[in-house]
């Protein structure tokens, strides 16, 4: 910056926004908000409308006024769909409980201790977090197949817990960093063991944050595709892969696929509407 400009009194800078009259400013806000709403809602609305149109009316969905729930009925008449919903629910729930259980202590350790061990562990976590999923799921497929775990509940569950280890340890560290450790020291002075101080003092304090992460973890597992595609087949159908299979030789059955996608979206919508506060709390870095 030149001397002259820094010495001279700053002129009033008027951007385009300030030039607008208050009414126009409000109009600008309304326009911006509508643009955001349109961008993020339009594809979802299109999907919902498609799922409500009869099979012959799916094309050019903006024409015609026929609406029906038959797609939902037809989707649920396929046994594999119910099975897929059930399996995905089971995998998401089990994977969430296990991943949280495994990583909560690891995050606590990273947060409370200093030294070579936490440092090494944190570096490993960072390094393994960068490894692309396909690079270890591809050989995991071979491992699972040779152990007879391919296309089983346990095989897919293990992959989900493993992928969460690094990321969750990292996030949990953040949760515990936000909790003052002095209460734990007080508990230890009063005769609590280290383990007791963790379980009785730190864990309850981190409870809400862990619950928030649990909600996100459940949704991520519910939505996961790559592991399901590689590690499962016909015996353990999962939601996302089953949905992608609505592409037949005759073309994609868009009405059925949309109906299933809308059903699969329900947990996400419920969580967004009613647990938004927790979700935002859990979305840390």
């Amino acid at each position: 910056m030149s001397l002259a400009s820094s010495a001279a009194p700053l002129p009033r800078r008027t951007g385009l926004f300030d030039l607008l009259r208050p009414g126009a400013r409000a109009a600008f806000m309304i326009l911006a908000v509508s643009a955001v709403l349109l961008l993020f809602l339009a594809p979802i609305i299109i999907l919902v409308v498609t799922s409500l149109r009869p099979g012959w009316g799916v094309y050019y969905i903006h024409r015609g006024t026929e609406f029906t729930l038959a797609n939902y009925v037809e989707v649920f008449q396929r046994g594999v769909v119910i099975e897929a919903f059930f399996n995905s629910f089971l995998v998401a729930t089990a994977a969430t409980i296990l991943s949280l259980g495994v990583t909560v202590t690891s995050g606590y350790m990273l947060s409370r201790f200093k030294g070579w061990l936490p440092k090494t562990w944190f570096t490993s976590i960072y390094v393994f977090r960068t490894v692309p999923y396909i690079s270890w799921v591809l050989p995991l497929y071979v491992v699972n197949e040779s152990l007879g775990l391919y296309d089983t509940f346990f095989g897919i569950l293990a992959a989900h817990v493993a992928v969460h280890v690094c990321f969750f340890s990292w996030i949990m560290k953040g949760f515990f960093d936000g909790i003052d450790p002095s209460m734990e020291y007080a508990a230890m002075i009063d005769g609590c063991t280290r383990w007791g101080a963790f379980r009785r003092v730190a864990l309850p304090a981190a409870g809400p944050a862990i619950a928030a992460l649990g909600i996100l973890s459940w949704l991520w597992t519910w939505n996961e595709f790559l592991f399901a595609l590689i590690l499962t087949g016909n015996r353990t159908p999962l939601l996302t892969v089953t949905m992608a299979q609505f592409v037949t030789e005759l073309g994609t059955e868009w009405n059925l696929m949309s109906a299933m996608a809308v059903m699969a979206m329900i947990p996400a919508v419920i969580i967004t509407l009613f647990a938004q506060k927790y979700v935002i709390q859990g979305l840390r870095i």
Binding site: V33, V36, L37, F40, L41, A42, P43, I44, I46, L47, T50, L219, W220, W222, N223, E224, F225, T240, M243, A244, W254, M257, S258, A261, A264, M265, A268, V269, I271, T272, L273, Q276, V279, I280, L283
Partner: peptide, 24 residues
Amino acid sequence: LVQTVVLLPLMIGPVIASTMMRWT
């Protein structure tokens, strides 16, 4: 309302999002 709508894409995940985009 806007915050809720903005959160949706992240929650519904890439599979459903890609499906709807392919159709759109």
